[in-house]
Amino acid sequence: MTKSELVEIIADSYGEITKREAEVVVNEIFRAISDALAKGDRVELRGFGSFATKRRNPRIGRNPKTGESVQVPGKVVPHFKPGKELRERVDQNE
């Protein structure tokens, strides 16, 4: 499923709003989550899962082509942990 398919389903199952409006709302939801993560906040969505950021320390890496050592800077990466309900529902269904 892509974002535009998700938008269509939401617009269809929701008589009140147009496809264009559904698109704006879907974009806004994921923008809100991204913004929160960018601020270092954790996003906890009950029944779905939680998004958090993890810090990666700087390290000495190696260019696999030349074998040269390179300094890889530290960074912050997003992380998603599926919630119990999502975990169970995905695993059960065979």
Partner: peptide
Amino acid sequence: IVEAVLDEIKKTLEGGEDVKLSG
């Protein structure tokens, strides 16, 4: 709608299908 969006993603994953949200 927030609930519906998360629900729809859950249902799709439950069916074994990936969900691709560009951006």
